[in-house]
């Protein structure tokens, strides 16, 4: 669970997580936006199906993989959240055509 510091100001960005409306701060990465919205687990692993969440936040661990606007296996910590972005948690392997 993560919370915003009271003085952390900025423009609000509306996006969706698994179809539900959510809000982030402009400049948030997708992974940060998920954590700020109480989503700690963003995918399950292809090997055992175990849940995973962001671990390194700097693009090296690949645990924060999510589906963004229909494209799977995107590194949530490396992509800034944009207005109207559709973020989906993903299960197991990336599917064909996603």
């Amino acid at each position: 669970m993560f919370q915003r510091l009271p003085d952390a100001g900025g423009e609000r960005v509306s996006f969706t997580i698994d179809g539900r409306p959510a809000e982030a701060l402009s400049g948030d990465s997708v992974a940060a936006a998920l954590l700020a919205n109480g989503v700690g687990a963003c995918r399950t692993t292809p090997v055992s199906g175990a849940p995973r969440g962001p671990y390194c936040m700097m693009g090296v661990c690949f645990d924060c993989l999510v589906t963004i606007d229909g494209t799977g296996n995107q590194q949530g910590c490396q992509i800034r959240v944009r207005p109207g972005m559709r973020v989906e948690t993903q299960n197991g392997k990336r599917e064909i055509e996603r």
Partner: peptide, 15 residues
């Protein structure tokens, strides 16, 4: 998470 990851969340997003 890594402590460095938490620091990145603080610096970039005030989280």
């Amino acid at each position: 998470m890594g402590a460095g990851a938490a620091q990145i969340l603080l610096k970039t997003s005030g989280l």
